[in-house]
Design a protein around this nucleic acid. Structure first.
Lengths: 325, 325
DNA sequence: ATGAAAGCGCTAACAG
DNA sequence: CTGTTAGCGCTTTCAT
């Protein structure tokens, strides 16, 4: 900038004004400066700029589990759009479900002085963020609630969606429902399970805990567990799979066996229509979830001082066939 | 940092040393500093640090078309892993296939003084990056070659993969092959088309340009075009679809008609096994593509001064059934 | 409307 | 081993 100023025969401050499109610069001087900028290939150092001006790195941090996962990729895409509307760049970090790593990454994002944080939390305690939030780095949590920290939160209606879905199973006459999930250590799984329990309880159906199977991490395991449940005496007449990885394995096994069990899944699929076994899903709008969170964050960045808010994104039951009992 | 130094009764330099784990600090002083850091909630300002130290923002920029697209999400995931190995964060920007936007985003990334750039190019001319590269911001292009810029490039073997795939069609007796693509303005499509032409030409099959259809952007259009081609006199006996969006539509239409045409697709599917119509694909390792590019970039960042390199990632023919003529 | 000087928070270069 | 000083590139403040 000093070089540009020298070349244009003006002060650095004038260069700064021109580069930032500030008013009150004579067109003639501005021309000279622009010419010098072009000749010298000058590019403003954004780091120095935001160091001096205090805030506004025009960057937000997004912390997710894993960017390659389509759910998080969809979130990242929607967030990127909102960020782009605010001329803001996106720093993306993947926690890989490791709370220690999550904490380190969040600290690092703060050290880079992002304007705000969008977090799909992995850990249970985010109190370490309190000082950052107090110091003016707003944080919005999405998909899962923050632990030990009062902050804005945007969640799916996991419980309500599961309840509505399982209610249709009950209404179709099913009482023995096999429930397949990965881990109760994940908030969304607990909520979905609770919703299922509520719907069954409302029908006066005692829940058979032997039909609830967790630890299912991949389609192969899901297929095996479905087989085991079907092979036991008094097998389930319906299944509720709590995410789409599990649904996939269930579809395969039910199709393979020519079963007539009903299948309900949480999470929609792009290709559900083409799969060889009909099933109904509890769908939701991932982009709406992410957009709501991002827009809330930018409102906070703009200075909205109101109390922390909790938003709930509704789910939608998409019926694609559900055999009765 | 000044406050921490005062509190610990040491100089700022000592604080700096402690915070950066520099050697030659008495454990006792280090303890005092660490205590002061904790009490004051001090967090090092990464911006100021990299401003002063010249380089090393520990950030790389990734420019892609659209993060929500699974192909790019997979790339981002693999890049994030490599970056994480180098304690580096990832700034992701989506060009949305707009060359002007691409240029603006790349300039912005440079203004933020990223240590390097990973680019899936959208535009045809990247000469504007020359000065940045000369000034020490290395750039590696992936999936498509850079325009008007000598730079490292990592590409898929689009042409070879298409050639090998279509050769199997030819060997199965097919001579009339319908070719479905979105746009010849995209490098990868041109290459795949060229590979298909080569394989057909090698078999002495005159290419019927009426069987080559472009402008197919979605599965619905793909299905319609497949129908049109099958309904014309002397229809194709096989189809080659140049990406998986198109393959999806083709699968649907062929299945719907109970057709016996062979289907070959470029791009593999997660769920290909479950789809209702058998087809063979030219598969490739997207993560390998991204890893190779990222590793090359970090080698450049570390100072590798050798000539720009071009890497070619091989493809793999996955046969899942291919009816003969 | 333009410029001079100070300083954002940190680290490099030197002293001690 | 520790401290002092200067300065990264920019913007703020206050003159002019």
């Amino acid at each position: 900038m000093v070089d540009v100023a020298a070349r244009a025969g003006v002060s650095v401050k004038t260069v700064s004004r021109v580069v930032n499109n500030a008013p009150y610069v004579q067109p003639e001087l501005a021309q000279r400066v622009l010419a010098a900028v072009a000749e010298l290939g000058f590019r403003r150092n954004h780091l120095a700029s935001s160091l001096r001006s205090g805030q506004a790195t025009a960057t937000i941090g997004l912390l997710i589990e894993e960017i390659a996962n389509p759910f998080y990729a969809t979130i990242a895409g929607a967030v990127a759009e909102v960020a782009s509307d605010h001329d803001t760049m996106l720093l993306i970090a993947s926690s890989e479900e490791d709370p220690a790593r999550e904490q380190q990454l969040l600290r690092d994002l703060c050290a880079r002085r992002v304007d705000g944080l969008l977090v799909v939390p992995a850990g249970e305690d985010h109190s370490f963020l309190q000082s950052e939030v107090d110091l003016g780095t707003p944080a919005v949590f999405l998909d899962r609630p923050a632990g030990e920290l009062r902050a804005d939160t945007v969640l799916l209606d996991n419980r309500g969606g599961a309840r509505a879905g399982v209610r249709t199973l009950v209404e179709a006459g099913h009482r023995r429902v096999g429930i397949l999930l990965d881990s109760t250590s994940v908030y969304t799984m607990r909520e979905r399970l609770a919703g299922a329990r509520e719907a069954l309880a409302a029908a006066g159906a005692a829940i058979d805990d032997r039909l609830v199977r967790d630890g299912i991490r991949d389609p192969g395991t899901a297929a095996r567990v479905v087989g085991e449940l079907l092979d036991q005496p008094d097998p389930p007449t319906a299944f509720f799979s709590l995410n789409n990885r599990i649904s996939l394995g269930a579809v395969e096994e039910l199709h393979r066996r020519g079963s007539t069990a009903a299948l309900l899944g949480f999470d929609d699929f792009d290709l559900a229509r083409l799969l060889p076994y009909p099933f109904t899903v509890v769908a939701y709008d991932t982009r709406a979830l992410a957009r709501a969170a991002a827009e809330l964050l930018f409102r906070r960045i703009a200075g909205d001082p109101s109390e922390p808010r909790s938003l709930l994104i509704p789910t939608d039951l998409v019926e694609r066939g559900l055999p009765g009992r």
